[in-house]
Amino acid sequence: MTGVPDPMAASKISLRGVTKAFGPKKVLQGIDLDVAPGESLVVIGGSGSGKSVLLKCILGLLTPDSGSIRIDGEETVEFNDRGRARVMRKFGMLFQGGALFDSLRVWENVAFGPIQSDGMDPAQAREVATAKLGAVGLGPEIGELFPSELSGGMQKRVALARAIAREPEIIFFDEPTTGLDPIMADVINELIVKCVSDLGATAISITHDMASARKIGHRIGMLYEGRLIWQGPVADIDRSGNAHVDQFIHGRAEGPIRMQVRKL
């Protein structure tokens, strides 16, 4: 992704010492992270490394055990319902499986935020939904269908349209290309780049897909065993000097990262 934002600018998202455990399993072990306004950060890491938990902690869907999470300088960890709802207005999220509401039509899914949360008139929200569907390459006739009638790639596009419908300042992408063929994955990557740059939004994406990471990110961070073990510009990923990163980006079974596979 081009147009790297100024790293010295005040952080849009700032994490300090964030920890989260589920019982004895320590998923996040002291995450320090800053994301500048307009920056697109991609977090890579193996399954179970804590990527999704990290996003859910920032969104407030999970409460961290300790540490600080600031959005635009405002501490969000101890927010009440009203404060959380106010900050949530800044966010858009593309879920891994789309998470489209299957009882609603496609246009109602896209217009959900504007109608239910912003109180927009349904007729006007429908126009917004049609425009956003158009922005992700879907015609207005798709709006009349239910999510179960769409292919995986189309569902991802609708989910992207829903994520950008309220023109958020911050967008999260959870495994945006998982389960898609390489061509559709690239289409989604290009849409993400276009939407983020059109909105001037700050983005955090989590992915295993290195092609996607290289395309949509300004900066990449690698999470391993709940710690951010490396971060740097996308261009530096191939000369990170970190054996864990090298093993991950080349997809090698041999290396410092040991998968827990039981021998047959």
Binding site: K56, L61, F112
Partner: peptide, 18 residues
Amino acid sequence: GTMRVTEQIDALTTLSTD
């Protein structure tokens, strides 16, 4: 339950809907 396991409930939260 299906909404929970398919993250639709989390999606409601991200759309500022309790």
